[in-house]
Structures are given as structure tokens and as C-alpha cells.
Design a protein around this nucleic acid. Structure first.
Length: 272
DNA sequence: AATGTACGCAACCGCCGGCCA
DNA sequence: ATGGCCGGCGGTTGCGTACAT
């Protein structure tokens, strides 16, 4: 099957959009919506291909786009999500309201990659011989959508927890004074959390989706401390995730991701 | 002030998968 | 089952601007 390139037709304009074109596109979409991108430019009177219109709208003109620099929290979120998801920019963008995949991709390539290189200086665990995970996860390795696949974490947020084989408990401590925590910057956290490791039964229950509340699920397995970690008032609680049947697994991932990043930690226990 | 270089960002390109006739 | 259309995605490019020399 051979497809003609999107903008092969002669006469279609390329390159930067003018304010007039923007106005035409916004006015048209506000009035009629964008049911069919391919037909839209003709109907709106634009000499652009539908793909170009769609990109301009989704990456720049959409009213819900957050403009301006990324906050430190957003940058940390991108770094951590990238560790979990790899180069799945759209998936990362879905977790950052108001940000587009294109924007996140640009920020990653221009700012955050450099930041990581700095963080991977000789003080990092792998440089000290503590962790042997020198590369960021490849996208195929980082997928968290299949339950048989495992999470892999790069060296950005080196684990600070200690796992005790005696009581099967992962514990970690955070506080305002803990400067080694990079994931909770700007957050006024001051609590200690000790959590047992998530075992197979936990994840099978997650996947079975036969419960209604993530709090119930986590609490029944790990006690109220885990909920307390997640319910720090300065960050989202699990309730924000709208846990429900089909996306229960991913939502629990989000929940745990928040629980641990809030505590300045990425959970190694998420290896399933 | 002029020129060269590096950087950031918007936009494009090509591929893929879902849907439908 | 096949082929075409369409939207979405990730990778890449190229222009404009900031900074350095």
C-alpha cells in the first residue's frame, strides 16, 4: 500500500504559521470543531495540510496549553516518568496537564538530558560502584503497560531506601533536611515511612480490579502509613487518579509512583 | 560592532495502527 | 482479506535568537 505524502499537493504552505493563519484556524475550530483534520484546511480557507493544522492546534493554539517555563516539579516529574516510560512522550504528556508531547520532548532534549549528565557525575551511585544501571531504560524495556514487564530505573534518583531481608520491609526516610532527595524538592515533607515490599499477591489483586478504592487496596497490604505518605496535603492523593477497572493497573502505578516520589524515593519493589 | 557558534523551539517527516468500505 | 484514509506518535530538521569571541 503506497501512501501519498501528506503535503505533496502543490500550493500548500509550509513553515512557520502567521498570526492570521492562527486566527483563521482558531476561529474555525471554535465555531465548528475539528472533526476531520484533512478536510479542515479547505473548509477553513487555509493553504495548509490537515496534519500541519492539527500539529499547530495541539502543540500551540489549544486553549488548555500551559505556556511558560517548566517548574522544577514538572522537570522532576518528566525525569521520573521518563525513567518509567522511556521516550513515550505522549504518555508522559498525559500525566502533565497543559503540556504537549512536543514540548516535553524538546525540554528533555535541551535541558533534562544535560541535567542528568550532571547528576551522573562521580557522586552517583553507579560511579561509586553501588548501582549497576548506567543507561536510561530503553523504551522497550521501560514499558509498564504489560504486566509481565518490569520497571527499570536509571541513576537519576538513586535509591536511598534500605531493604531488610529479615522483616521484608523497604524503609525510607524523608524530611526537609534530607538534601539527598531530589524528587521531593519544593515539597514540605517531614515524615518517615516504612513499607513492606509489594509481593505478587498485591499485583494480582491490582490486576484483578475487584476492589473499588486504591486506598483500601494499599492500606490492606501495607497499612495506613502508605496512605499517609500519599495523602501529604501538598500533593495529589490517590483519589485524583480515578481508579477504575480497566486502567486499575496503570493507576496503581501512578499511585505508587506518587507515594514514593513524594517520599523522595523510586520504589525498586515495583519490579514485578 | 561584526562575526561565529550554540542553543531552543516550532514545525515537518515518516511510520504505524485503527477503522471502515 | 484487502486497500485506503485518518489521526497519533517519535525522531529530526531548520530557523531565529542569545551568547561568546
Amino acid at each position: 500500500m503506497v501512501r501519498a505524502p501528506c503535503c505533496e499537493k502543490m500550493g500548500l504552505k509550509k513553515g512557520p504559521w502567521t498570526p492570521e493563519e492562527d486566527h483563521v484556524l482558531v476561529s474555525y475550530i471554535q465555531q465548528y470543531g475539528h472533526g476531520n483534520w484533512r478536510a479542515l484546511p479547505k473548509l477553513a480557507g487555509l493553504l495548509r495540510c490537515g496534519k500541519s493544522c492539527r500539529l499547530r492546534w495541539t502543540n500551540y493554539l489549544r486553549p488548555d496549553i500551559k505556556r511558560g517555563n517548566f517548574s522544577r516539579e514538572e522537570e522532576e516529574a518528566i525525569i521520573n516518568l521518563h525513567q518509567m516510560l522511556g521516550n513515550r512522550w505522549s504518555a508522559i504528556a498525559a500525566r502533565l496537564p497543559g503540556r504537549t508531547d512536543n514540548e516535553i520532548k524538546n525540554v528533555w532534549h535541551t535541558h533534562l538530558k544535560k541535567k542528568l549528565n550532571i547528576k551522573q557525575s562521580p557522586t552517583t551511585p553507579e560511579a561509586l560502584g553501588q548501582v549497576s544501571e548506567p543507561e536510561l531504560p530503553k523504551p522497550e524495556d521501560a514499558s509498564c503497560h504489560a504486566k509481565s514487564e518490569s520497571f527499570e530505573y536509571g541513576p537519576v534518583s538513586p535509591p536511598q531506601c534500605t531493604t531488610s531481608s529479615a522483616d521484608d520491609t523497604s524503609s525510607f526516610t524523608t524530611s526537609e533536611n534530607n538534601n539527598s532527595s531530589s524528587a521531593n524538592m519544593g515539597m514540605n515533607v517531614d515524615y518517615e515511612v516504612s513499607l513492606p515490599e509489594a509481593d505478587e499477591s498485591f499485583w494480582s489483586e491490582v490486576l484483578s480490579a475487584d476492589h473499588n478504592s486504591p486506598n483500601e487496596l494499599v492500606s490492606s497490604h501495607f497499612g495506613d502509613q502508605a496512605i499517609g505518605a500519599a495523602e501529604n496535603p501538598q500533593v495529589n492523593t490517590s483519589m485524583d487518579y480515578g481508579f477504575s477497572g480497566s486502567n486499575m493497573y496503570e493507576n496503581c502505578m501512578d499511585f505508587w509512583y506518587d507515594v514514593f516520589t513524594r517520599a523522595g524515593e523510586i520504589p525498586e519493589l515495583l519490579d514485578i
